[in-house]
């Protein structure tokens, strides 16, 4: 353990010459103050080669057993990501619960930033991602989980999408990156659409806050009509049916229980019916956006293909495995069960 240089975060970028640039963030021990980290960069054709080059630059033996984060640059992710992840699966010492994320632009600057809240950038990024997972903004995916999903012809993987704000030297989670089989499609869901996707996939809500404006712009204070609320309970049912024309219908029923956290107008109970209607419209619109985006990206995040394989294997056999998702007809149905108004009326 003494001679090991621990790699905590690895970034993969594609250079203009189609070579792989690999960055590794390693902690540097300073007994005086807290941990700093040092970034090692190497350019090679594959991660294995890059590792050999990095080993020459590092002071100890490179050890990736504590590598908990893999950052994929956008340019790299639009090509097939699986082959270069092979080294992470083959090494017995690797941690298979490493998180993955797609970074807008280049991934390398992300590990070179100097964060003010934590001196160890790997810790900072990992905490960022884990707290986003906690608030149900992004799905909880590690390398082991996505391996099964990527190889599944009937399901596609979704990864967190991060951006570096170079002005403030902060990284922020922008949403969910949509993959089609093994490639990043370039499409992503923003931060209002992402929680909804996760709720539609059956996740349990974690105090996700939303706010929307249902007032018309003609009013004097349009801001007064913004209401912020949380989703406290969510119940999803997905029904897959195939009709005679081999057309796949998916009915998505989502039942939500909301709690209002801010309502400038004051009286929640009085406006309850109006709020119910507005919420339902809002969510239905949002769901439509999500599904539209998914189908544009051809990203089967729901696993429709897997369900077809399980329940309608003959239908599945006759399908076009590449484009089947685009032909699925979704009928979302969002029902707001209750609106809780909090301790105030």
């Amino acid at each position: 353990m003494k001679n090991a240089t621990l790699v905590q975060t690895v970034t993969y970028d594609l250079t203009s010459k189609k070579r792989l640039r690999v960055g590794a963030a390693t902690p540097v021990l300073n007994s005086a103050d807290s941990l700093q980290n040092m970034t090692l960069v190497a350019e090679a054709n594959t991660p294995g080669e890059a590792r050999i080059l990095l080993n020459r630059k590092a002071s100890g033996l490179l050890d990736s057993s504590k590598n908990k984060l893999l950052l994929l640059g956008e340019a790299y992710a639009v090509h097939d990501i699986l082959p270069f992840l092979d080294i992470h699966y083959r090494n017995p010492r690797n941690a298979l619960d490493a998180r993955l994320a797609v970074v807008k632009g280049e991934a390398l600057p992300l590990i070179q930033l100097r964060s003010k809240s934590e001196s160890n950038v790997s810790r900072y990024l990992l905490n960022l991602i884990q707290s986003a997972e906690e608030s149900l903004l992004i799905p909880k995916e590690d390398i082991q989980a996505i391996a099964s999903v990527i190889m599944d012809p009937g399901e596609d993987v979704t990864l967190p999408y991060i951006e570096l704000e170079s002005s403030s030297q902060l990284a922020s989670v922008k949403g969910i990156a949509l993959f089609d089989k093994r490639k990043y499609t370039g499409f992503y869901l923003n931060d209002t659409q992402s929680p909804l996707l996760l709720l539609l996939k059956g996740g349990k809500p974690r105090q996700n806050s939303f706010s929307f404006n249902f007032g018309s712009p003609k009013e004097e204070f349009p801001q007064r009509q913004i209401v912020s609320f949380l989703i406290t309970k969510s119940n999803r049912k997905l029904k897959l049916t195939v009709d005679e024309h081999k057309q796949i219908h998916v009915a998505l029923h989502l039942k939500l229980v909301l709690r209002v956290i801010e309502y400038p107008n004051g009286d929640v109970e009085a406006d309850k019916d109006k709020l119910l209607r507005e919420y339902k419209a809002y969510f239905t619109k949002l769901t439509g956006e999500v599904i539209h985006q998914l189908q544009r990206a051809n990203c089967d995040a729901f696993g429709i293909g897997r369900m077809l394989m399980a329940y309608h294997p003959d239908v599945w056999r006759g399908l076009d495995k590449e484009q089947y998702f685009r032909q699925v007809k979704f009928s979302p149905n969002i029902v707001i069960d209750k609106i809780k108004s909090g301790i105030e009326h």
Partner: peptide, 29 residues
Amino acid sequence: YFMSPNDIKRVPEPFIYMIKSYSFRVIER
């Protein structure tokens, strides 16, 4: 846990793979 046929055919020892990806608060691996 592993999808077949593709996924399970790449892991000769499925159990160790499965358990390797757990991480508890006190102990990993």
